[in-house]
Structure formats: C-alpha cells, structure tokens
Design a protein around this nucleic acid. Structure first.
Lengths: 167, 167
DNA sequence: GCCTAGTGCGTAATAACGTGA
DNA sequence: ATCACGTTATTACGCACTAGG
C-alpha cells in the first residue's frame, strides 16, 4: 500500500536532477530519508524563525501599501506591479502572488458577507410572508361578514316593504 | 509539443524557472519601455524568490486515501495520523497539515453550498410573498365595500328612526 | 491569411508556514 | 500538542497575444 515515497518531490526532482545534476545537488543537498527538512519545532516568539531560508511574512508597512493599492484597484497591471515591487523592495512575482491571494481572500470575504446579508433579507421576507398569510386568512371571514350584512339589509328592506304597499 | 500536450516539460521548465530564475532570465532581455493601450509583453523572470522552494503535490493515490479518511472523520487523532503517515510514506506533520487545510476547504465549500441553498429558498419565498401581496391588494376594496354597506345600513336605520320615536 | 510554439497573466486549488487560543 | 485561521508560495490550468514559418 505504501512504496510511494514522496512522489510529489521525487518526480520533479528526478527530472531536474537528470537535467541539472549540479544544480540539484547544490540546492537540495539533503533529503534525509523520506522526509524533507522541516525546521521548526519550538515557539520562537518574535523570532525570524528558520535558519535556512524562508523569509515569509511581509512587514506591516508593505502590507498597508499593498492594501491601499488593492483598495483602489483589484487588478494589477505589469507597470503598477513593477513599481510596487521596487517601492516595497519585493520581487514583482511576490507582488503578483500577493494580489492573487488577496483577490481570493476578498472573494471569500465577499461570499461571507453576501451570505449574512442574504440571510437577514431572507428572514425578514419570511416574516413578511407570514404576516401576509395571516392577513389573507382574514379574507374569507371578512367576505362572510360582508355577505351577512348584505343579507341583513335585504331582510330589513323586505320587512319595510309595507311602507310602500297600499296595505 | 505545446504546454498542453506535454505538461511535464512545461511544468518542469516552470519549476526550474522558479527555482533557478537566473538560468532562465538570460534568455529574454527586457526590451523597450513604452506604454501601449494593451499590456502585453515584458519578459523578465525576476530575481530571488529563492525562499520556499520545497513543495509538493501529493499523488492521487495519497489524496484519495486521505479523502477517505477525512470522509469518515474530520478530526485526526495522533494514532490515526501516524498510521496514515506510514501508509502513505509521508511525514506525520504533512498528514496533520493536510487535515487542517482540508477542514478549512470543507468549511468554505460548505459556506458556498449553504449560500446557494439559501438563495433558492429566498427566491421562492419572495415569489410567494409577491403572490400574497397581490392577493391582499383585494382586501382593502372588500373592506371598503363592507364599510359602505354598514354606512348604508346606519343611514337607513336613522331614516326609520321615526318609527320608534314618539314624534 | 493560418498554424504553432512561446510567453505573460489570471484563477483555482492546495501545500506549508505562523500565530494565538 | 492540536486546532482554527490567516498568510505566503506553488502547481496546474486557461486565455489572449505575438512572432516565425
């Protein structure tokens, strides 16, 4: 059932290592068994974490500028991307990725708020509908009351018929 | 030999270009700076992005087994995690991460379904409400008719008041 | 003109990481 | 430690445009 050890790495790295063995060797020197290097174990509070590489996490400054740009326009033309990248000291690629991810986030957020908006709208409409239903329930009785009244008028009219008759 | 017909080569080059942009960048010099109404052009595989090279893609087999396990239970006890990890040839950490991400995905998917369900429900209720509203529109005229009738009866009654008065 | 390979950018999915409870 | 949640990065498509037959 097993026997496939990390094919996701093996396949790609195999090809690469065949084409560029030297590069492969210098970039991925250690595979150590069947697990890839995973530095990280303890809670390094406020630490740059990770000795190897990985400088994740953009600074608050960078993020705020990105957010401002995102706010004015969700799409990103090459020109703006490059400008932002140089302003932020980031790879244009990173800027593009940030925007892509930001759009995805925005979409999810949008969906969530659309959901709650729709939910409240739905609930109020349901209440309205119930009100109307009870109102409509009164319709037949009102109709019946009208009928009774008309009958009453008719009977009254016939009772007074003597007024006109030469009795 | 397009990227569609031979994705391996394409993907491989993509990966290589991302891992070793320097290798890739020389091929295409950046040409001319000028703004055309259309944005299209620009050849430059940027620098850096050296961080975060190791990546993945689990095999279909691994994913299907993970999915089966997720289907039976969204939570993952240590025991099951370790068993799965050894069956799949993965780091237990990877299995844990996979489950965490899977739960997040599931949540989003759930939200989406709930949204569309709510949406159809909402629409049908709106239709119902409109139907009731037009129905209720008849209510005031009926009510008015009743009122008129009652007034008529009253006036008729007062006209006949002499019958009872000791006039 | 009409392919066809190459390239840039977009989206969707997803892996892995970081933080805080 | 695990989990939820947010974030960064990558994989793998798809589409539009372009240059060279």
């Amino acid at each position: 059932m097993t026997s496939n050890l990390n094919p996701q790495v093996d396949d790609q790295m195999l090809l690469i290592s065949q084409l560029y063995p030297s590069l492969y060797a210098q970039v991925v020197p250690v595979v150590e068994g069947e697990t890839r290097p995973r530095r990280r174990r303890k809670k390094n509070k406020g630490e740059s974490t990770n000795v190897g590489a990985r400088k994740r996490k953009l600074s608050a400054e960078q993020v705020s500028l990105l957010e401002m740009n995102f706010g004015s326009e969700h799409k990103l033309e090459s020109e703006r991307k490059d400008r932002l990248a140089s302003e932020l000291g980031l790879d244009p690629r990173q800027v593009a990725v940030w925007f892509q991810n930001r759009r995805a986030r925005w979409k999810n957020k949008k969906l969530e708020e659309e959901y709650s908006k729709l939910k409240t709208a739905h609930e109020s409409v349901v209440v309205e509908k119930c009100r109307l239903e009870t109102e409509v329930l009164l319709f037949p009785s009102l109709s019946y009351l009208l009928q009774l009244t008309i009958q009453f008028v008719d009977s009254f009219d016939s009772d007074l018929s003597f007024l006109n008759s030469p009795h």
